[in-house]
Design a binder for these strands. Structure first.
Length: 352
DNA sequence: CTAATTTGACCTTC
DNA sequence: GAAGGTCAAATTAG
């Protein structure tokens, strides 16, 4: 039993490594042929998705190894990750749904949690919801002991319709009011993410009802919300700025230019509508964000990408060194013991 | 009219 | 018992 799981586990990792290698080769080809920014972004998202999948698998595998007595849902690796990196979210959401029915609250506690720090742009003075591509509904607000600002609680708008149990908490930083700490809990099992990913030029008002075919939007799904963390426009008291400068890692082919461009776009207040960057969903990129956006200023050229490459090797061979790993900079908790066996453990479904 | 937000009450955890 | 998290009725917005 255990050996079988070990074999499957290793096979999945091998497939992921191979896929990532091919993606890297493709990326280098793109770099040599002056790719568009959107292509670069897409490429980076693909690579980071692979990396994260490997990282998770490694940390999970190292921590608990193949489960001795797998539950019907414990075949997460097989069911969540396909060789081509696509996410079978339907399967995932189904199994997810089955389990959550019997104990939703308990399940929520088992969901992975990660935190992003979003710095708003103090210059434009605009405040409002940020947009991470998902539709959130505010369901509560609490004054937190010792915190100057209240904490807002959001859940996925499609919780009931699509049984999506993703939630997030938005807490304004005491130290720097322009910084918002956004804690995500659970991954989206709904399809709405694709809406923001491909900004409808004509009818943005239909975003929430649009449903893009799963397969077609899969790659985009991977590129999701991390570049833009949206607090929803609902925060009346704390008024979250709708525009913010986002520390990111656009260091793929010509990092600096891209980062500059991104900042400028952020400033003009038309993120999704005009920027090619947002044609592709910001994916797990968020996970690369440093809590200290200022560090990004010194983020140069291809440094980031080299960093990525070496990290991947380390991850695969030496198990998640959080020191070097891109994920080391974020407060992302992946506790193998707390992870839901049914959690969509694919690169696209987990880190959006 | 429908959907989202607000906010006090209730529940859970420590 | 206190604090954080969630619920749900009332209110507001589109």
């Amino acid at each position: 039993m255990e050996s079988a799981y070990t074999w499957e586990y290793e096979t999945v990792i091998n497939e992921l490594v191979q896929g990532m290698e091919k993606a890297k080769q493709l990326h280098f080809h793109l770099c040599s042929t002056s790719p568009s920014r959107a292509q670069n972004m897409l490429m980076q998202r693909i690579l980071s998705s692979y990396e994260k999948a490997l990282l998770i698998l490694n940390s999970k595998g190292a921590a608990e190894h193949p489960p001795a007595a797998p539950t019907p849902a414990s075949g997460v690796v097989e069911s969540s990750i396909s060789v081509d990196g696509s996410c079978r979210s339907e399967d995932l959401s189904n199994s997810f749904k089955d389990q959550q029915d019997y104990n939703a609250s308990k399940k929520r506690k088992m969901q992975p949690t990660w935190t992003e720090q979003v710095k708003v742009n103090p210059e434009n003075g605009l405040e409002g919801p940020t947009d991470d591509g998902y539709s959130w509904r505010k369901y509560g607000q609490k004054d937190i002991l010792g915190a100057r600002y209240p904490r807002s609680y959001y859940r996925c708008t499609y919780r009931l319709v699509q049984n999506c149990w993703a939630t997030k908490q938005v807490q304004r930083s005491d130290d720097d009011p322009t910084v918002f700490e956004i804690t995500y809990k659970g991954a989206h099992t709904c399809n709405q993410s694709t809406n923001a990913v491909v900004p409808p030029p004509a009818s943005p008002e239909k975003q929430e009802t649009r449903h893009i075919p799963q397969q077609q939007s899969q790659a985009l799904l991977n590129l999701k919300a991390n570049l833009r963390v949206n607090t929803g426009s609902s925060d009346s008291k704390e008024t979250i700025p709708s525009q913010f400068s986002f520390p990111s890692t656009y260091e793929l082919c010509d990092t600096e230019n891209q980062y500059i461009s991104f900042s400028a776009l952020v400033g003009d207040g038309n993120l999704g509508a005009h920027s090619p960057l947002f044609l592709s969903p910001a994916t797990s990129e968020t996970n690369y964000f440093s809590p200290q956006p200022h560090h990004m200023a010194s983020f140069g050229g291809s440094q980031g990408y080299q960093h990525f490459e070496s990290d991947v090797a380390d991850i695969v061979s030496a198990h998640a060194s959080t020191t070097n790993s891109p994920m080391g900079s974020m407060d992302f908790q992946v506790d193998p013991l707390e992870l839901d066996p049914n959690f969509p453990f694919n690169a696209s479904g987990f880190f959006r």
